[in-house]
Amino acid sequence: MKIKLITVALLTALGTTVTVAADNDIAALVEQYIASGFKQGEKQHTERIVQDETQKQCTTYRNKIPSEMQKAFMERERATIKYPESGKLSGNWEQGQKTFTDGFAWRVGTIMPDKPDAVRGGNCYACHAADPKEVAAGNIGSTLTGYGKLRGNTPETIKYTYEKIYNSNTYMPCSSMPRLGHNGVLTPEQIADIVAFLVDPESPVNK
């Protein structure tokens, strides 16, 4: 009986070890395949395939960070946030509408790269509805129509909205939304303009 129990325990332990090892092997192979999967050389920006800690964790846990890790995760993301020099977190809504709408550039490679100096937009309609007049809005993100009407144009809402756009992972670990400020896609001033587009009572979002 005792021997039988020990055998079962041993087998269970072995089974677990084998599964974990297999997952680690696959993860290591993924990195090998990725490393050889892209063209090298000028204009390729291969640094983009190197993951930071956030991307690594979101990959390992497939975007479901264990609850005991979430606090540290979100604190790390919060520490990355930078604010506009003016201190104004809500800017010009009309300029914000333009930045919100503009297709985002920054594609690289040699086959069909964007102009490196092209002004970048947020391309927010790819995923979010906002101005109800824009029919062709995606639905990966939440709908933002009536955002300011619902949440008010308060300092709290403005701060939350700015931080959410700057680093979406501050409020939701492994959010699908890019960390637009932290990753250098948009400047703090551009983000403040988008905030205004979302909260200003004069913006079509809230009409």
Binding site: I49, V50, N183
Partner: peptide, 16 residues
Amino acid sequence: KVGEGIFWRRQGPLDF
């Protein structure tokens, strides 16, 4: 298996 891993790997300036 590796293809599935690549499918879930996040990277780049859009974290995609």
